[in-house]
Simulated scan of single mutants.
Amino acid sequence: MLKIHHLGISQSERIVWLAEELGLDYEYHRYDRRADNRLAPDEYKALHPMGIAPVIQDGDLVLGESGAICEYIDRKYGGAQHSPGPDHADFADHLFWLHFANGTFMTNGMMQLMLAMAEPKNEMPAAFAADRTAKAWDMVEQRLGEAEFFGGSQLTTADIMMVYGLTTGRMMRQTPLGDRPNTAAYLQRIGEREAYQRAWAKCEPGMEPNLT
């Protein structure tokens, strides 16, 4: 059976959400972060050489990396219903946002966070990171004014990948949503999905999702 290992308040929430969207029967394991440094506990780190979330097990396979896991599960267990093929009108948009999520959007946020923590302060790279981050958020707002979902006409794994950075990831960086009505409306639509609600209740019981 497919096993999903979720680290509290982490990117692995994506995988639980995808499994719920697909209605899969899976084995779920949740791990709390350490109290002293808020990192993954040793038993989670032992699951994969990188020691970070997410991680799944499928028989003898141990797989990490959000995008790879999303593609694997959707193709193997979901009949690629959340992955438009090359003949689909949304194919290119889906691919772009699927890879933009961690390749650019999350990377910009992490770069900005690390520079804010670094000593001594250096204004030039900080300004560079801030500019890239602002451009990425502007692209998100524009896209969500053009289409109902990042991938186009339907929910795809591009949405599964992007939503974490707009919600939990944004909360962790204490980034306000600001004047972005298209993004705000999109997050309300996502929050109304029963699969998202089920996944969130499993991943972070007693905690409200950061949808505003």
Rank of each mutant, 00 (worst) to 15 (best):
A126P: 00
D87M: 09
A136F: 06
Y31K: 04
F150A: 13
Q154K: 15
A184M: 11
A89P: 13
M117A: 15
G178L: 05
L63C: 03
M114Y: 13
Q142F: 10
M114S: 12
V163E: 02
Y31Q: 03
I73A: 07
R30M: 12
I190S: 05
D90S: 03
D25P: 02
D74V: 06
P205I: 02
E146Q: 14
E65S: 10
S12E: 01
Q81P: 08
S153C: 15
R189E: 05
D25N: 09
L22C: 06
S10E: 09
P54N: 00
P181C: 00
L7G: 00
M117P: 06
M1C: 12
W200V: 07
T212F: 11
P125C: 01
K202P: 04
R193D: 11
I69D: 04
Y44V: 06
T167Y: 07
I4R: 04
D138S: 10
A80R: 04
R132Y: 11
D25I: 08
M117I: 12
M114F: 11
R180E: 04
M161W: 06
R180I: 01
D58S: 03
P49T: 14
H29I: 07
G79E: 07
H94Y: 15
D74Q: 10
A101D: 06
H48G: 05
L144N: 00
L2Y: 08
M117F: 08
E43C: 10
R38Y: 04
M124R: 14
T212M: 12
